[in-house]
Amino acid sequence: MDRIDELLDSANPVRPLNAPRLDARAALRTALEGAPAVDAVGQDFVGGRGNGVFGGRGARRPWVVAVAVAAMSALVVGAVVLTQLLAAWQPSPPAASPSPSVSSGVTGTDEWRTVRLSPTTGGAAGPQIQLELAPGFIIRSDVPNESYDSLSFRIVRDSAPQGVLAQIYYGKVMPQRDPQACIARPEDYVELDSVPVDLPFNALDPEATSPRFVYRVVTGPSLKASLGITSQPPGTSVDGCTEFHHVESLPGGTMLIVSDHFQFSGSAAGWLSTSTTSLTPAFASLEEARAFMATDEYLTYKRMLASVRIVQPE
């Protein structure tokens, strides 16, 4: 815990030692019977939930309130049990964490092939990342040190023009990030292609959609291609502080990143930083960006990235 954490933690004005204890039954009665008026719940929160539900005091229905209050005592014990049952309900259990180190690089061949990326330590019990790899491309481990507890690989073209196409990260949510990356302003983009991919995602997250491969063109001073897999719904801008493409909150509290804008910062192991190194091209116009979709280069990138799967070891 750093200094700021200590300070903020210690300044908490309501802690177990000094927190007020109120009669929950009386509080419930107050909640249902005699609360002061509130005009409305703020629009920023209500959103699409339906404002009509949140009427003022006049919207209360006394007969329903009376029923609830009268039966409250009889239900307290049952409610506690219910609460415990609800608390016990959880999404699927956490998957085994990936081991810190990975198998050696997959070397290039002349044909497309399916590769599985798995840890070399800790056995093969954990999930593996599978993808199709095009001729001339190889996989390189991108784990900065052995203590790093998530998996990371780069898809690299081993023949000219050499370069990094994308990073694949699979591990815990919210790795540390390079503070410098947070200086960036949100960037606007246009989404030109989208293909569903068969990957798990957190369907309970209201902001998540089924994972899909996307081809976007980041607009701004220049037009630059951006490829990856995302569970975010289509939009028009992306926060430059976070990675451009990711599937968040997979079962087990893990996340998957397949993106050409996401790399480790080599100077600070364990920190993640947005990347500026990529094989994906820049364009002079949106027409040129659209035309790129018809090229073999694009179709190769798309096939590789859209083929990423999380699989169990055979």
């Binding site: 509080a27 409610a79 219910l82």
Partner: peptide, 16 residues
């Protein structure tokens, strides 16, 4: 009503 009472029992103190 049962669900609401359960919610109240579980979360009243945190919200307060």
């Amino acid at each position: 009503e049962a669900d609401f009472i359960s919610l109240h029992v579980a979360q009243h103190e945190r919200v307060l």
